[in-house]
């Protein structure tokens, strides 16, 4: 894959390579196409517990910012929450089919749904599709 891969318009993106889709008062979250391509074949996804309170990812990273972990054959990477809030729902399909992260990162491979606690403020910390594409170009 060259560059950022697929970067759909209308989503928000974090520096940790998670995407956010606003759905009314809720936010659906997953990892980007770029992130999944770097991970390789995903073989296991650790999901957060429903009800977990998470904080928006920032430096230094902490467990309270994690919404699980994504594991490939030889690597495990924490997934960091792009927003603060409460986990309302997780994607049960990933337990049986972790490869959905690879095959459908923006649709069937979503990780969880959050109820954001500071949406308006925190969205300003995220990037739009163009901003994320530029960000990834600088990493390459």
């Amino acid at each position: 894959m060259v560059g950022a891969g697929e970067v759909p318009e209308g989503l928000y993106y974090s520096r940790e390579h998670e995407w956010v889709k606003i759905e009314g008062k809720l936010a659906r979250v997953g990892v980007t196409d770029y992130a999944q391509s770097k991970l390789g074949d995903v073989v296991y996804v650790e999901l957060p517990e429903v009800g977990k309170q998470v904080k928006q990812a920032a430096e230094p990273k902490g467990k309270e910012m994690e919404i699980g972990a994504v594991e490939s054959i030889k690597a495990v990477s924490a997934a960091y929450s792009p927003l603060s809030g409460t986990v309302k729902e997780v994607n049960p399909s990933l337990q049986e089919r972790p490869e959905l992260i690879n095959t459908s990162p923006y649709n069937e491979g979503w990780i969880c749904v959050l109820e954001p606690s500071a949406l308006e403020v925190e969205l300003k910390q995220l990037m739009d599709a163009k901003g994320y594409t530029d960000y990834v170009k600088k990493l390459e």
Binding site: V43, Y44, E71, I73, K74, Q95, E96, P98
Partner: peptide
């Protein structure tokens, strides 16, 4: 090693 199922029986 790394090559092992990481499904529900992991």
């Amino acid at each position: 090693g790394c090559m092992r199922p990481r499904d529900a029986r992991r």
